[in-house]
Simulated scan of single mutants.
Amino acid sequence: MVWIKHLEPNDVDRAVAVAPPDAPAVIFQRTTGSLSQSATVTSSLDEMEAVAGQLFPAWLPGAEGITTSAGGALAAVRSLAIAHAAGTAQYGPFLVDLAVGALAGPGPHTRRHQPEVRALGLARVLAAGFGRPVCALLLRPPDNLDEGGTLALLRAAQWLVDHGRLAVWIGGGSLAPGDWLPEVVVARPIREAPVARSGPATRSSVRSGTPVEERSRRGPPTGRSRRVGRPGKPHPTSPTEVLLETALATRSWAAGRVWNHTVRPGPLVNPVRVDLLWKQERCVVEIDGDDHRAAGKYADDRNRDVMLQLNGFAVLRFTNTQVIHDIENVLALLQQFLANRRRARKGN
């Protein structure tokens, strides 16, 4: 358990850009400052379950394409969950409840199980869903916690470490001083500390199987932060990425693309994680949500764009709204740009 005392909103984004493939999947949660350790643990587990529901079916092999509870879907996911648990360390009844609940809608659906079972099972599911070896929680407490709230938070965090085998980071906030504080590591700012290379965090996301426009209106769940998908593929819980990839998959001119890829623009430049890339054409595509309008995020985006452009990459930015409501225009612009780049390359 680590207290990252000076954590700024963009620090996690910077850490994500240089996170190695074996870094943990980071789940961001805001805590309420409850005076009860049990209530804090339950709230954290419920939010973890909500994220797992968003990720379904990425963590259940064989369930790809099952997006509703209609027909024999529930029986199918029960069977798949039992079979998967039998070949892994997961507890079968818990995994069945989680899979069925992911199709049923908002939960929680696994509270009948002991908190220890939920913590360990959810940590494994979230790591698998993001294709990462482990999972970490980044807890953001409210400012100026009093002594009771601080003690409850620290006890809950230690419980999650012990029973979920999670790394737990407490980011920012102002913890009340007390005899327990020496047990908490007070780290340097994340941009300077080794923990800065731990990631990735996740994009605000929505559960599979709902219309794209409906999912877009819902906004980010409370337990999520910035996303990073599996290298080479669109993020399974980003409706915008999935929608665009579905359209690109039918276009022959879109060959050569790769999603969520890390590029190093130049020998003296830090690596950058981009949403979509055509390597040969040196074309970067970024898909921006509402968070990119914030002043700090906007400035970071412009700095990234300039750095990429100075090293020969073109950067095309589209908003979620453009992709969702005007995808044909987005496709036409991409096709035109790639065609121009390919003609220029052949001419050289």
Rank of each mutant, 00 (worst) to 15 (best):
V2A: 04
I4G: 02
K5M: 08
N10H: 11
V18T: 15
V18P: 04
V18C: 02
P20Y: 05
P21W: 03
P24L: 11
A25Y: 03
V26M: 13
G33C: 05
Q37W: 01
S38F: 01
A39W: 01
V41T: 03
S43H: 08
S44V: 15
L45D: 06
L45Y: 03
E47V: 05
M48T: 00
M48Y: 06
A50I: 03
V51Y: 11
L55A: 15
P57R: 07
P61I: 14
G65K: 12
I66G: 02
T67V: 14
T67M: 02
T68F: 02
G72K: 14
A73P: 02
L74E: 11
A75S: 14
A76S: 15
A76H: 06
S79A: 14
S79C: 05
H84W: 11
G92S: 15
A102R: 01
L103V: 01
R111P: 03
P115D: 04
V117H: 05
A119R: 12
R124P: 01
A128S: 15
G131W: 04
R132A: 07
P133N: 10
A136N: 05
L139Q: 04
P142G: 11
L145E: 08
L145A: 07
T150W: 02
L151M: 08
A152P: 03
L153H: 06
R155T: 12
A156D: 08
Q158M: 10
W159D: 04
D162C: 06
H163A: 03
H163D: 05
V168R: 07
L175M: 08
L181V: 14
L181I: 15
V184Y: 03
V185C: 04
R188A: 15
P189M: 08
R191V: 15
A193M: 02
R197W: 08
R207M: 05
V212F: 02
R217Y: 04
P221S: 13
T222L: 14
S225P: 00
R226M: 09
V228I: 13
G229W: 05
R230F: 01
P231K: 03
P234R: 08
T240C: 07
V242G: 00
L244S: 06
L244Q: 03
T246H: 12
A249G: 02
W253Y: 07
A255K: 13
G256E: 10
V258K: 13
G266Q: 09
P267C: 04
P271Y: 11
P271I: 11
D275F: 04
W278M: 09
K279C: 05
Q280H: 13
E281Q: 15
E286L: 10
E286H: 10
I287Q: 06
Y298V: 00
D300I: 07
D301M: 10
D301V: 09
V306P: 01
G312C: 08
A314M: 10
L316I: 15
L316F: 09
F318H: 03
T319F: 07
V323R: 05
V323G: 04
H325W: 06
D326C: 01
I327F: 00
N329G: 09
A332R: 14
L333D: 13
Q335N: 12
Q336A: 11
A339L: 10
R341N: 04
A344D: 13
G347A: 14
